[in-house]
């Protein structure tokens, strides 16, 4: 089975995008769509006995 990816003008990074922006743009293609909850994580040292 083959896949064809057709890039349109909308897919192209802006001409003046920096490498970092290009990288982020590309990474986003393989991620879920926006709308997931924003997640905070902490591994705060807690020498805490329960």
């Amino acid at each position: 089975m083959s896949h064809e990816y057709i890039l349109t003008d909308e897919d192209a990074a802006p001409a003046d995008a920096t490498h970092a922006q290009d990288v982020l743009e590309l990474s986003m293609l393989t991620m879920p769509q926006p709308g997931a909850p924003i997640v905070d994580i902490s591994w705060e040292k807690s020498p805490l006995d329960l």
């Binding site: 743009e25 986003m28 879920p32 709308g35 997931a36 924003i38």
Partner: peptide, 13 residues
């Protein structure tokens, strides 16, 4: 643009 992209990054969980 950089802030827009990073905002999208964290808004995907």
């Amino acid at each position: 643009r950089l802030a827009e992209l990073m905002d999208q990054l964290v808004s995907r969980g």
